[in-house]
Amino acid sequence: MINFQQNHFDLFGLQPRFHLDLAELEQAYRGIQSRVHPDKFVHASDAERRASMQSATQVNEAYRTLKGPLARARYLLALHHVDVQSESNTAMPSEFLLEQMQWRESVEEAADRPDELAALALRLGREMQEHYSQLERHLDREGDFAHAADSVRKLMFLERLGEEISDALERSEA
């Protein structure tokens, strides 16, 4: 019997690894959702409708967590009791922080030029991809959670940067 307290990977019948077949995840997600979704319980009792909403909510949350690579990595680390300490541990390598400042300057300079912003977004995407490759090695092959946590912290910076570029793009189009 599946227990909701158990982890998101088990819920979808997947191995708890960073590398993931998204098509397989999607298929499992849809398979479960097409059984528990509230649309299937429109005429059921209140108790069943409530249970259906709670299940569908949990399945959505699990899917969202596993679908995104950063959320998935953080979740895997949490399963291994590794806290990425996103709030307290902001002591990043100075080299990385310097890069971040340069990135931000570039974004500011490109503020009114959607084409340049789009190019920056592309470059950022490539850089993040490199970090994800490292992350996969740390998590799936080496079991090196300390270095994985480092990569996650860096990626969190980069993801926020991505959001800033996205916001700037939105403003430049408005």
Partner: peptide, 13 residues
């Protein structure tokens, strides 16, 4: 109701 929901998930898998 919640046990039935769990069973449905189990069967989907």
């Amino acid at each position: 109701a919640s046990r039935r929901m769990n069973r449905l998930i189990h069967r989907a898998l």
